[in-house]
Design a protein around this nucleic acid. Structure first.
Lengths: 249, 249
DNA sequence: ACGTTTGTTGCATATTATGCAACTTTAGTT
DNA sequence: AACTAAAGTTGCATAATATGCAACAAACGT
């Protein structure tokens, strides 16, 4: 179906603004979208009118607006999985000492919807709301292996360990579904290993993935299986909490 | 300036979806916006293409999409005030035993950007991301009294204590700026009293408000001044943290 | 004070969003 | 299972509107 172009342009502006650190001016937006600055000006005014962008008082540059917080938070609150998963994420942190994450599938990527940090003192940059590729993160591999997503056409490498070969990845996914947990061995971020397992709902449908991530020095390959079984058992407990019936499998 | 109408329609759809519990269908959206269902269909498809709405797999109804979480959370993370204020909110909770909130001005309303709950057990519905009126909440009154917003034309009552008279409100705001804290005496929610104080940045400009809210039974009128001075002193400490120089006042 | 860059407005034109109608699909009812 | 009703999508002609241009205004830096 043909898209409504002026709406699409407005949405593209929002995406542009996400990736700009200090906002953007009218001309800058116009250049990026390859439209006239008059059009950019009018689109920005419309977005501002509804609170989706906001002008910095000082620099007059456009920033993402409060309405996005309102709508985004509203949606997060509706995602009940998040509420149910909270205590299990804490349990994961308690048992492994590493950071715990919860992700769901969105836009063919892994959307992080909650996070519990290991040490409150050492605050990691919050990753809630970020999208990550499916093929090189543990949470993503779970969504690939147990869900019905396809492997993307392009396997862009992030580190030298990122699996860029399709058949290698397929073999990994087969192994993942067999043993029940997925591993990210410094495939997305250097020095970070992750382990994840699937979460099912009452209808035995995959709803998300939970997992842990930590420095490769602590999450060693020798202890991976150990971490794996912890993650799997807690993911299973969460699934049971959601009404998942193990007898149905 | 004239708004781009098709973009505006798309944004209106997002606002509509926020207030629907179980999503909306194409026809329903069309009816609400008073446009043809073919237009609604095309707008929804465009929104979906960019992840701003999502179709429920089961019911085929449209819901707010993950892109809003991504953008909203992204913005929240950028609001550094929130990070700085965290420990002060906890301090407020420790000293008063009530819930603490942080709000900024957005869209001529008070946007709650963080919250620390008093008792972890008794979880209050999360209010982060919600917009509240300025004229009948403590946080809002601070933004009115110390900021440069105008009193809205319509003072819609929420309880029988809501101040709907313009001059009465002006007198309250004058009193507020004199004593340094604002009170909401069951003016927005029955049984809830709130106390709030202003937060300034390094340039002595108002950046937000912090405050506490609790049941009228605990936050009694006799103890209001006591709560007020606690809130004021912590708000001042936070302002100092942000580089606010008291000698400049 | 100057030129330079950025943002806004008026207007004619061409693009595009729109409503209508026909059609397809899904859900509900007898 | 057959039928009816409602919801959603697509093609198409037309009307609406978004667009670029140009001129203008404002802010910035030299």
């Amino acid at each position: 179906m043909a898209e409504i172009q002026s709406l699409a342009k407005g949405l593209k502006i929002l995406n542009l603004l996400e990736h700009s650190r200090n906002g953007m001016g009218t001309t800058e937006v116009a250049t990026q979208l390859e439209i006239d600055k008059s059009s950019a000006s009018r689109l920005l005014h419309t977005l501002a009118k509804y609170g989706f962008v906001e002008q910095d008082q000082l620099t007059a540059r456009y920033l993402l607006g409060p309405q996005l917080v309102t709508l985004g938070q509203h949606l997060l609150n509706r995602i009940t999985l998040r509420d149910h998963a909270r205590p299990y994420l804490h349990e994961l942190v308690d048992k492994t000492g590493e950071c715990a994450h919860l992700a769901i599938l969105a836009q063919r990527q892994a959307l992080y919807i909650d996070q519990v940090e290991s040490t409150a003192a050492l605050r990691v940059e919050s990753e809630i709301g970020t999208l990550s590729p499916l093929y090189c993160t543990a949470l993503g591999k779970i969504l690939l292996a147990f869900g019905d997503s396809r492997i993307p056409d392009e396997l862009t490498p992030f580190t030298h360990r990122t699996v860029t070969d399709r058949s290698t990845l397929e073999a990994q996914l087969a192994q993942t579904s067999k043993r029940g947990y997925a591993i990210d061995d410094e495939e997305y971020n250097y020095g970070v290993r992750c382990v994840a397992a699937p979460v099912y709902d009452h209808k035995s449908a995959l709803v998300g993935a939970i997992g842990i991530s930590g420095p490769a020095g602590r999450v060693t390959l020798e202890r991976i299986d150990e971490f794996g079984s912890v993650v799997v058992s807690i993911a299973a407990a969460l699934s049971a909490r959601l009404g998942y019936d193990f007898n149905l499998r």
